[in-house]
Design a protein around this nucleic acid. Sequence first.
DNA 1: AGCAATCACTTGCATTTTGCAATCAAAGGA
DNA 2: TCCTTTGATTGCAAAATGCAAGTGATTGCT
Lengths: 141, 141
Amino acid sequence: MTDRTYRSGCPINLGLEIFGDKWSLLIIRDMMFAGKRHYREFLASDEGISSNILADRLAMLVDAGILSKADDPNHRLKAIYSLTEKGIDLLPVIAQISRWSRKYMPVDPAMAATGEARDRGGPGAVERQMAALRDEHLAQA
Amino acid sequence: MTDRTYRSGCPINLGLEIFGDKWSLLIIRDMMFAGKRHYREFLASDEGISSNILADRLAMLVDAGILSKADDPNHRLKAIYSLTEKGIDLLPVIAQISRWSRKYMPVDPAMAATGEARDRGGPGAVERQMAALRDEHLAQA
DNA sequence: AGCAATCACTTGCATTTTGCAATCAAAGGA
DNA sequence: TCCTTTGATTGCAAAATGCAAGTGATTGCT
């Protein structure tokens, strides 16, 4: 984790310094909800991230300790990205953003379904989803 | 509210298209926790926002319906910014960012106090804080 | 063995956004 | 009257972003 120099010690600011941009949380969303693990998969996002930005953000998120990167055991060319606990803990943030947008923005109903189901799942739904992510991503990382 | 064209209808993306940058949520933070209402006050933030960016973000947030702008009744030069309901509803998002940062980032303990108190206040603490903001900001806007 | 396809990126370059300092006009206060 | 305060705007350099093309190391197919 590269040493950084922060604008201030405010919790809100420190969070924004890491993921306060238009792409970082979308990469994490794709890992959490679409099960993406490879560069090529992230590149194919709906929003159309460009390859240089994707490479930059993946490196930054790994450096920040939110993702980890490993070689695919049965395909030497493939890199596999995993969420760390620090990354999985961003789910509550993402879930709140989703709630706000579903209330105020013109969301695509099909894409709102995941969030609506989570809301219907009661207070434990986020925790259950985080537990599932731990199984997938922290298993033998 | 200017018509925008969005990268996708995904709730996460739509939120990021509005406040997915390094400054917007800091302005809202200053309104929520420091009671700031005037341009000059925002300009004096710890993080040092520059005046052109501040003007740009304030206009954008007003356009997005998150803030409203009014003339100060007893000072014609002063503009007074208020949170709308849509803006107040960002508190849960901000509270989650605060939690994550307090867990993982090197926050200034003094600046963490507000968030810690909110967490200790139980599940109703955020709602109470939102109710107080409604009193201040929606009263006679 | 040969070769095209796939993999995770890089590179070059134009455009956009940001950051910084200086400046502005209108209004208030002494 | 003159000085300060207000919410900005302007000019310019630097950084970030977006887009298209290219790179080199595999891998799978024949």
